[in-house]
């Protein structure tokens, strides 16, 4: 079976047949295209990102706007998500995780001077939900909020893969493997070895694998009580990361434990460890 053309974006099983389901997918594709951008987007760009005809995208946007989830901006055909849409995620578990992690993210960016990132496992993908930037003048490009990578691809995504029980990690790699073709330096065997090393060390390390010159250290936040697994990472120039691997790993472990504690408290759960 050949992989779907955009396997990285739509990992779920094929939608059930039945009227309207396809419309639901269109609505989700448009919402996803708008997510993570502060500036309003043009219809033509939204249609391209959602892989829809412009007329279809316009119709979906109008309906979303009538329901208060999308705002039209100005006289031009610009659209953005509404404040109402922006608040939807706050009460979900990933939203609670982001709030619980805020102080930790700021602290990591100040102490490391590099970029702190927060991701959450979302099926077979890592979804990036927050970042804070340090002051070091050399910064490695990182994924924006709302962007995603297959499990294992990226340092946070590798920590998430390594946090899975071995059987589940293998099954996830079976599904993710076709998407690895887009990353020339990666292979299934490499990800298996790196995940194993991450399990042994207690933190994931990536150097020059995805972005030449860039690397990172990540630690998983395991919170099965809250029904989620996240990862917190520090990403920066490879030499800076490698020179401080142990220090960053210790820092990240401490913050991951604190985030877990606050997450459980915010979910109304006791920290059982």
């Amino acid at each position: 079976m050949s992989p779907p053309p955009d396997a990285a974006r739509s990992p779920g099983p094929p939608a059930a047949a039945g009227g309207g389901t396809n419309s639901i997918e269109k609505a989700c594709a448009v919402l996803r295209a708008l997510a993570g951008f502060d500036a309003p987007l043009r219809l033509i760009d939204i249609a391209a990102a959602a892989d829809l005809h412009q007329a279809t995208a316009a119709r979906v946007l109008e309906t979303l706007a009538e329901n208060g989830l999308v705002r039209r901006h100005g006289r031009r055909r610009l659209y953005a998500l509404s404040p109402l849409a922006g608040r939807l995620g706050q009460a979900g578990r990933a939203g609670i995780l982001r709030e619980a992690a805020h102080a930790s993210m700021l602290r990591l960016s100040v102490l490391s001077d590099d970029t702190a990132m927060l991701s959450v496992r979302c099926g077979d993908e890592a979804l990036y939900i927050a970042h804070e930037f340090g002051r070091h003048p050399i910064r490695v490009d990182t994924l924006g909020i709302g962007r995603r990578r297959p499990l294992g691809v990226g340092v946070g995504a590798l920590a998430l893969l390594a946090a899975l029980p071995q059987g589940e990690a293998k099954a996830a790699l079976d599904r993710v493997e076709p998407a690895l073709a887009r990353f020339p330096l990666l292979s299934r065997g490499l990800l298996e070895r790196e995940a194993e090393r991450a399990r042994t060390r207690g933190h994931a390390l990536v150097a020059d694998l995805i972005t030449p010159g860039g690397g990172g250290v990540a630690v998983a936040i395991r919170a099965p009580e809250a029904g989620l697994t996240g990862a917190v990472s520090v990403v920066g120039p490879t030499d800076r990361i490698l020179a401080r691997e142990a220090e960053l790993a210790a820092m990240l472990r401490e913050e991951a434990a604190l985030i877990r504690e606050r997450l459980l408290a915010n979910c109304g759960l006791q920290n059982s460890i």
Binding site: G36, D38, L81, G89, A91, G92, A94, C122, G146
Partner: peptide
């Protein structure tokens, strides 16, 4: 049911340029 993880990225700041 609750909002899923994808909806976290629906939040927007005001655009600095605007």
């Amino acid at each position: 049911y609750a909002s899923g993880p994808e909806t976290v990225a629906f939040a927007r700041r005001a655009s600095p340029e605007e």
